Simulated scan of single mutants.
Amino acid sequence: MPATFPPLREELQGIEPYGAPQLDVPVQLNVNENPYGPSPAAVADIAAAVAAAAGTLNRYPDREFTELRTGLAAYLNTDGGSGITPEMVWAANGSNEVMLQLLQAFGGPGRTALSFAPTYSMYPEYARDSNTTWVVGHREGDFSLDLHHARALIAEHQPHVVLLPSPNNPTGTALPPEVVGVLCEALAALPHGGILVVDEAYGEFRREGTPSALELLPVHRNLVVSRTMSKAFALAGARLGYFAAAKEICDAIRVVRLPYHLSAVTQATAIAALRHAPELLGRVDDLRRERDECVRWLRGQGLQVADSDANFAFFGTFADRHAVWQGLLDRGVLIRETGPDGWLRVSIGTPEEMTAFRDALTEVMKENEA
């Protein structure tokens, strides 16, 4: 009998690669990108920084990306953090690589990672790729986290890593600080200890009064808070994710990182972008206002909408959500079909894009009522 070719790992056979649809339509609101590109001044500075880096490409980049870590630490200390030093910051090629490195270091065979659904659909793939056992609990009807359920699962499965986005993807729900504190304590009390990773990929979009988990870093040494430059910084194409944690956690990641994993071009791009943080983040307030208006409008249509601290809105419920998704696509608007059955997610775009979304959804809903 002929062998299967190629000799892919058995648990990977038949699996479709992860990825949202990339379709050429006028209004693309399905992957939570920032619709506003970098400012002309930032583009010019990035171009000059990359040009300078190009002259050094015969040499390996700074393996410890010291200047970048210094810049990221300084930025985090302006957005919820306090006393974060460069030694407490780690970066990689997107928050995807950050998460995979964390599970390579702290997960693995015989170890368990835990989260609560609905949540980011890549988490179980990180666990699979690192041969970490994956356990998923559930969220409440309003997508909040029940602490009794969470503590019970931690006691039962004794995970080495708990992954929790805040705001949550796909729902946009933020974690209250008390939840973070309780879970850090529950993990610290396990015989082997455990770390809590709070994924703040959308942290800059949180509503006024919603704190960042960065505030709790001085209290819990087993807390990791991750961020990305893909969303608020409008640098999805640069692929730069990072986290803040105790120095010991950052040092541990060095064991699993690939040599020189951050290119000189990536480092130069991110460092230049940080110099323009105020202007790059200047559109965040615009997106917050557009998000809040979108949530109000959707609720005004009689739909359920999760409270959102992110740059997207999660809404439903529809008897046939795929028909709604397809109806929007037929009208040139691409959103995301994700999460529990009946729900859809729309990224927040420009005012013109959001008008196109509202007009298209109004038509689709009327069509479905007929």
Results as ranks from 00 to 15, higher is better:
R296I: 09
L344G: 12
E64K: 13
Y123P: 05
L68A: 07
N169D: 12
S121C: 10
R296Y: 14
K247L: 12
T112H: 05
A360S: 03
A252V: 09
A313S: 07
P259K: 02
L23P: 05
A272H: 02
E185W: 05
T228H: 01
L145V: 10
L217C: 02
T119P: 11
V27I: 03
A252F: 00
F233Y: 03
L258R: 15
A152G: 05
R139M: 13
P109C: 06
P218C: 03
R288V: 13
L175M: 07
T133G: 01
R283H: 15
F116V: 03
L8E: 14
R207G: 08
V224P: 04
A51W: 08
T78V: 15
Q101F: 04
R69G: 06
H157M: 11
G107R: 03
R257E: 13
A105C: 07
P159R: 01
T266K: 00
E125K: 12
R299A: 05
R227H: 05
A51C: 10
P211T: 00
D359Q: 13
N169S: 07
P38T: 04
L76H: 00
E204F: 06
L217T: 00
L334D: 03
P26Q: 00
A244F: 04
V162E: 04
G327T: 11
I253A: 07
A53H: 06
V50W: 00
T119M: 11
D309A: 02
Q28F: 15
V305K: 07
K231M: 00
A236I: 06
Y75F: 14
V346H: 09
V265L: 12
I195L: 05
A277V: 12
L175K: 01
A186Y: 01
L72Q: 06
A52W: 14
D307F: 11
T266C: 10
N169A: 11
S308G: 00
Q158G: 10
A20D: 02
N77W: 05
G137Y: 06
A370V: 15
D285K: 14
E367C: 11
N30C: 11
F243G: 00
F318L: 09
E200S: 03
V346L: 01
T66V: 13
W134F: 10
F205M: 08
T112G: 02
L145R: 06
A189C: 03
H322N: 08
L29I: 13
R288C: 10
H220Y: 07
R331N: 02
G172S: 04
W90E: 03
L23A: 08
I154W: 03
D199I: 09
T269K: 04
N311Q: 07
H322K: 13
H192Y: 14
G141V: 12
L29H: 07
P2V: 09
Y260T: 14
M365H: 14
C184S: 01
